[in-house]
């Protein structure tokens, strides 16, 4: 059902319930909070409008940015010989929070999921190949999610990059630091055993 014909309060409540993680009660609470704090409502409205109007994909890596290039691509201190391939901008943000990667990124804008009608043509494989063809890239790090579809996407990309001479690696998987073996699930342990390395 559309929101036409509803009063302003009902309309805002209805729109809020469409957001992830917000149910009808939370939506109603937020609506009344904004009614009581009108200045904040205006700031929020401006912020929403700015995001809609100004944020777009980076010309180089498809991260979100307000300019032509994102803050990572325009940073001269980043190592351009390493490209870390992620599914979504929020995966990039998670890796940045880890703080130990100094290369650049490429955001595929999803993963190959034929069951959801998402094929390779819907993702940014073409621009990634173009970046690699321009030269200077020595390593592509696959950081797609460790799900069947994420691994399938990485497999497709590794086939695509075969013959380019670029080293292809993928994120390690297994036990998180600080955990204990007893409470690790079977898959974590299997991955850790498979991915063991010299000590």
């Amino acid at each position: 059902m559309g929101t036409e014909g509803l009063g302003a309060i009902e309309r805002l409540t209805r729109e809020l319930t469409r957001l992830p993680g917000i149910g009808p009660k939370s939506a109603e609470r937020i609506t009344h909070y904004l009614l009581a704090h009108r200045g904040q409502a205006e700031t929020l409205a401006e912020a929403l409008f700015a995001v809609k109007e100004r944020v777009k994909p980076c010309r180089e890596c498809f991260n979100l940015t307000e300019g032509e290039l994102c803050h990572i691509c325009s940073d001269p201190r980043r190592d351009r010989s390493q490209i870390c391939v992620v599914e979504l901008p929020r995966d990039l943000a998670a890796l940045e929070r880890a703080g130990n990667y100094r290369g650049v990124y490429h955001v595929l804008q999803g993963r190959i999921a034929p069951l959801e009608n998402i094929g390779p043509e819907n993702l940014t494989f073409g621009p990634l190949l173009e970046r690699i063809r321009r030269g200077g890239v020595e390593e592509v790090i696959m950081a797609t999610n460790p799900t069947l579809e994420g691994d399938g996407t990485a497999l497709y990309l590794s086939n695509l990059l075969a013959g380019t001479g670029v080293r292809i690696t993928r994120l390690a998987r297994g036990l998180p630091s600080g955990s204990v073996l007893e409470f690790a699930n079977a898959q974590m342990l299997a991955d850790a055993i498979e991915g063991r390395r010299g000590f």
Partner: peptide, 9 residues
């Protein structure tokens, strides 16, 4: 299946 695209599809 994670190592063979036709099999994965």
């Amino acid at each position: 299946l994670r190592r063979d695209l036709p099999a994965l599809y």
